[in-house]
Structures are given as structure tokens and as C-alpha cells.
Design a protein around this nucleic acid. Sequence first.
DNA 1: CTGAAAGCGCTTACAG
DNA 2: CTGAAAGCGCTTACAG
Lengths: 332, 332
Amino acid sequence: MVTMQDVAERAGVTKQTVSNVVTGRVTVRPATEARVRAAIAELGYVPNLVARSLATGSSRTVGLFVPTVSAPFYADVVEEVEDALEERGHRLLLCTTRLDGERARRHLAGLAARSVDALLIAGDQGLTGHLPLLADVRFPVVLCAWEAALPDGFPVVTVDYEHGGHLAGRHLRALGHERALVLASPAHTVRTAGFRRAFREDGMPLPDDAVRTAADPTFRGGLAAALEALRDHPDATALFATHDVLAVAALEAARMLGRSVPDGLSVVAHDDTPAGLLSGPALTTVVLPKREMARQAVGLALGAASRGARPDPRPRLLLPALVPGESTAPVR
Amino acid sequence: MVTMQDVAERAGVTKQTVSNVVTGRVTVRPATEARVRAAIAELGYVPNLVARSLATGSSRTVGLFVPTVSAPFYADVVEEVEDALEERGHRLLLCTTRLDGERARRHLAGLAARSVDALLIAGDQGLTGHLPLLADVRFPVVLCAWEAALPDGFPVVTVDYEHGGHLAGRHLRALGHERALVLASPAHTVRTAGFRRAFREDGMPLPDDAVRTAADPTFRGGLAAALEALRDHPDATALFATHDVLAVAALEAARMLGRSVPDGLSVVAHDDTPAGLLSGPALTTVVLPKREMARQAVGLALGAASRGARPDPRPRLLLPALVPGESTAPVR
DNA sequence: CTGAAAGCGCTTACAG
DNA sequence: CTGAAAGCGCTTACAG
């Protein structure tokens, strides 16, 4: 492996000078710089980031916690974060927590030992109780995609989930729907609240019974809950699913009950669904600005890391948008 | 941050002794070891892996290339690799290549500069042309989930895809199907060949026209290809989809044409489908041993890394299995 | 603008 | 079994 020393000898300078041109911290006489750059190119020198890391404390590596990578939403988040990091010359150390606090704890120790520059935590599921652990870590921690109550003092870049639910509700109200159902995941209370607010503000409050929380928010659990809801409320003309998987379950339930979508039932989803896997009509859905969220979270974390400061703890709330599809129509 | 030196002073020994107990490389007198361990616990010392990495050359970090993390198959692979690494105290540096050779090249440089212990590459899509780059890298590279021709000299842990296709074909033949269609992704020629072999061996060779390759192997592209295939061959009683997304597309096509599954059409898939997202009947599918593949790839790579040797280049071929579901039935 | 020195926190032979 | 020394490849003040 070729080192800075090798380059220095080749260029007839000391290695400090090579360091100066590589880091650009100090201006070097143009002629010298040219010689150094030539030597670097000839030798194919590439700086050893481990050594640099030991000297500077920065590894140009960032950790990311996600509950899983198998959910389409988090898969997208991972790729967006990776892209945002790459633009800044950083790499991604991925940790899936699987909703397991102990596992997260082990990962945290691994990251600390490796001198990561920052840690991003996407999704709050099951981790809230372990947040205190993060308090005395030596690198900035930024939360994102956080729907639960915002923990004090932690910087967070997330989405206004309440607004997302509200958008879904307003959309259905604008189409004239008066009786709507909500198919919700237990973690999605905020979106549900926003949806109900839209109906309430319009003088059409939804009964508590119209909200069905699938204890098991998978396709299977969602299907059972959707069938039950639709049977209990045969007069409902619309349904809001707080999650992509639940929306797919709702579509299937409608199909099983002979309700066509959107004519027999309008369906609004939250999160974009994995287009490649979805059959049936393109869903009307609330889309989250994942790219923007990733960029801001990375910027906040790395900005703080480079200044050696704590990130600004004021929560950043991004706005979701409603993208109309073919799964909603005016009420008949 | 507490260092080995701090621990040494506390325990009244030199830091080399601390290093000896931490690494376990040299046996230390029990009384001394106890003092050192006590000091470590009191101070909450955790070894700095960056410093260790610089001294030993091993970062206890492994890179993984996958085309994307949004495809359920690769999402699973990522989590399995992560688990296999964690068992050995290693962490995962994730790089999604997005079928972009240039991007892979940049990631490779980033990994090399960070002294990863090894690199795993899952999926061959679009990377085969860039393989030569890997030849002169300083750490072991192991390929996995590799369907294309096995490149010379590279160690690979993969699945017998031909056998997977053959299993699918034999299953349909055992159910009495004589006229089957194949809905294939362009990259899946090997599975397709195995499927055709099963029919050929039974004296029922499939016409070339029965194989439809979806140039666009997404749901959309698969749906179009499936509709066309089913219309061109109204007498076909079974269909083999070489990929989960295509299987979902086939189900939808069957539904649109009024063919019930499995009575009107048997469908066999390859890869396990994301159960959470799938509507309709549970698919009969060829399942790949992802966990075993991840374990072996990690073991091979880290074994070679620790010995400073090249991994054994003999290809390891794991066997897929056919898991019966509700999407296949005896021909009527 | 360039060079000599010290240091980042570990490990690894090598003497005692 | 324990300790002193050198080294991993960089960066960072600090003199010249």
C-alpha cells in the first residue's frame, strides 16, 4: 500500500506538504503542488481514512438505525440517506433494530467504538425507551421519520404526520364523502388524529367506532380488520389506510366483498406504496418527502459534527403532499 | 474518552498488559487480569476500534453491495448478512449500486480507504463488466446470489438457480400440467432453462413461444407480458414466474382475464414473495436459502481475511426448495 | 510557503 | 508473565 511518505519522497518534499495539498488546509506553492499531484497520480495514492480518522476523530462514516429494511418506506429512507451521505463523501453503516432495544444498544456500542461522525435514527418504533442511552454519546444523533411524541432536546427532522392525515381527510370531504373508515396501525395515532380533525372541522365528526386499529399491522391482520370494518359499516363510502400494507389489505377486502374501487369505495393510503408490487388501481396516497428529510437530517448531523457542536434541537417538520390516484372518486 | 492508558494507570500496570487482557492474545496472571478487568468496568473503557484498525489492519467492518434495497429479496439478504456479521462482531457498510457501475466503483474506493475486512457482492446485475476492478483489491471479495456465468477465480456462494427452475417444472408436471408458460425477467435465463428441462425430460418440451421475457420486469411490464402470453396461449394451464413481482403481475393478469387461481391457472413463483404485501392466494414458490447463503458468504470472506489468504474460489452452490402454496392445483 | 516534532490509541515482537 | 520501544499512516500546531 502506498503511503503519504512514498508520495513525499517521489515529489521531493516532506509528507506534511503532501498532507497540506491533500487536505487543502494550507496553500502550497503552485509548482510544489503540481509535483505532489503528479506523484499522487503516478503512485495511485489514496489516503488511508483509518489513519486520518485516528488523527482527526472523524471517520467520514455515519450510522443509520432503521427498524427494518424490508418495509418499502424504510428501504427508500436507506437509499435516500445513502445518497445524501455520498454527496458529502461519507459512507453508511447500516443497523436494523428489528424493534429490539437490546440490539440497538449493541449497535450503538459498535458505532461508538468505530468513531462514526453521527447517527441517524429513522422511525421511533420500540426505541423511545432507549433514548436516554443516546444522551451521552460523543457524536450528534438526529432522529427522523418520527411520529411519536418528540423527545425533549433531541434534534429531529420529520414529517407533519398530523397534516398528512388531515390532507387525506380533506380530500375525501372534498369528494363529498360523509362516512369514512380508518384502518390504522397502532403506531399511527397522529395520522389518524389529523384525518379525524378534517372531518370534525367540517361538522362531520367520525364516530370512534369508525377507526379500526389492526393490532397486527401486516397484510393478514389488516385484511381481517378491514373486512370487519366494512361489514360493520356497510354504508361507509371511503377508507383511509395509515400505511401502505394496510391499503393493499383494504383493496383486497373490498374485492372480497364485491365493492369496486373507487366507485363502491374510495381508498386513500399514507406513504407511497411500492409501485412494482401493487396490483389494482394506482392509489391516491399521502406522500412523504423522504429525500428532503434525508438531506436535512444528514446536513444537520454532519454540520454539527464538523463544528463539534450539538445539532440545533428545534424540530424540523416537513410537509407531506396528497397525490391523487385512481382509488378515490366523488361519492355517488 | 477513556483510553487503555487510563485503565493501565488505574490497575497499576502498563498499557501493554491491558492490551493483553483485552485481546486475550497472551495469558495474564489471574490476579493482574482481575485488577485490569475491574479497572475497565469502573472506567467504562471501550477499545477504540479505529486505533486498533490502524495497528492491525482490520476494521471489523465488511462492505456489502446490493443492486437495491427496495427489492424484497435484497432487503432480506441485507438483514441476513447483517445478522451473520453481528455474530462475529462485525458491522455492515452498505452500498446500493443501483445497477450503476460508476457508482459501484466509487463505493469500492470508499471501502478500500476505510480498510474493510471484506466485501460481499450480492446480485450480478450490471456489475459483471466491472469485476476486473476487484482483482487487485487488498481484501477478500465474495460474490453471492449470482445467477450469471460464474466469473473465473472469484469465490462465490450462490444458489443452484437451474435446480430451482427444475423444481418448479417438476412440481407442475407432477400435477399433470402439460402446457405451461414462463414469465421471465431478462436476467433469469438460468431458472428458465431449469424449468424447461423439467418439461423436456418428461417428453413435453415447451415451445420457445411459451417463454415470455418481460423487457421491463416490473409489475407494469410483467402484467402486459402476462396478458399477452395468456391470450396467445388460452390453453395453458400453468405459469412459472421467475420473480416475485412477476408472479404478482401474473395473478393480476389471471384475475383480469377471469381465470381463477389455482383452478383456472396454476402459478409457481421463484423467490419468496413479501408476505405482508401480497394479496390473493399464498403462492407456491421456490424459496432460496438466503440465511445459509449469507452465513457461508460471511464465513468464507472473514475466514480468508483473518488468515490473510484468498478465499477458496470453488463455487458453493446451495439448493433451493419448493414450498407448496395455494396457487397450484392438479390440472383439470 | 515548507519542514521537524509530537501525537491520535492501539498492537506487536522482543527483552527481562 | 510483565514492561519498554517502535510503529500503523495520518494531522496539527509551531518554528523557520
